[in-house]
Amino acid sequence: MRAQIELLGVTKRYPNGVEALRNVTVRVYRGEFLAVIGLSGSGKSTLLRCINRLVEPSEGRVYFEGEDVTHLRGEALRRHRQRIGMVFQQFNLIERRSVLENVLVGALGRVPVWRSLLGNFSAELVQEALHNLEIVGLAEKAAEPVRALSGGQKQRVAIARALMQRPQVLLADEPVASLDPATAHSVLRYLEQLNREHGLTIVCSLHFLSLVRRYASRVVALRTGELVFEGAAEEITPERFRHIYGEEAEEVELR
C-alpha cells in the first residue's frame, strides 16, 4: 500500500540560505497519528508546511494520495491545500470576529470569491459550521467573539475551522505549546478523537515526550533539518533522546 503522504528526499533552502530541511524522507500512512519532534529550529514547521505546500521544497518530491504536489501553483495548489487542515501554536484566528465567522473561513475554498467577500455563506455551510463546533464542544459559543475565549477554546475553534475543509489530513504545528498542561490534554484528546472516530490522519509537532507517548502512534525526529529517528515513541531510549535533543538536554525538562 502506498503511503498517503510521501516526502522523498526533501530539502528546503530559504532565501536567506538557511537549510531548514536536508534530504528528508518521511512517509505518513492513512489514519495514523504521527508526531514530529525536535528542538526549535530543527525544521518541524517547515516539514509540516511542505505537506500542504505553504512552503515549496527546493529539492525532492512531495506526493499526496499518489499525486505529485511538489510544485503545484494557482488553482491546483489551492485545491490541494483545501484537503489538508492546519492548526497553529498561535491559533491564528480573527480575534474580533465571532466564533462562527472564524469557522466559516475554513469553507472559503468552496465558496465563490464574490460571495465570500459579501460574507454571504449558505445556510448549509452555517449548519455544517455549527456541527463542527459541536464536535469540539463549542456549539453554544458560536456567536461570541473569539477574543473572549480561553486559549484552549481558541485552539478548538481553529480545529473546527480546519474541519470545515472536510480534510483528509490535519496538520498541527505545536498546537498545545502555548497552553497549560491540563488544557493541552483536552485539546489533544479532540485530535485523538478525530483520529480514532473520523479516521483523520494527523501530523502533529510536539515538544513534550510525555504527550508524544500518550497520543502518537509513531514518531519522527528532526535535528537541524535532518531526520534522526523514526519509530514508536517507546523506542526513544535515553541514548536516542540525547541524540535528538543534544547532550545537555534532560528528559525531565521535556515531560
Partner: peptide, 21 residues
C-alpha cells in the same frame, strides 16, 4: 501578523479571499 494570513492561505482560499479574511 502573518500568522492569520498563513492560516487563511492554508485553507486553500483564493488570494483575494486571503486579503479579505
Amino acid at each position: 501578523d502573518p500568522g492569520l494570513v498563513e492560516a487563511v492561505e492554508s485553507t486553500g482560499a483564493h488570494p483575494i479571499q486571503v486579503v479579505f479574511y
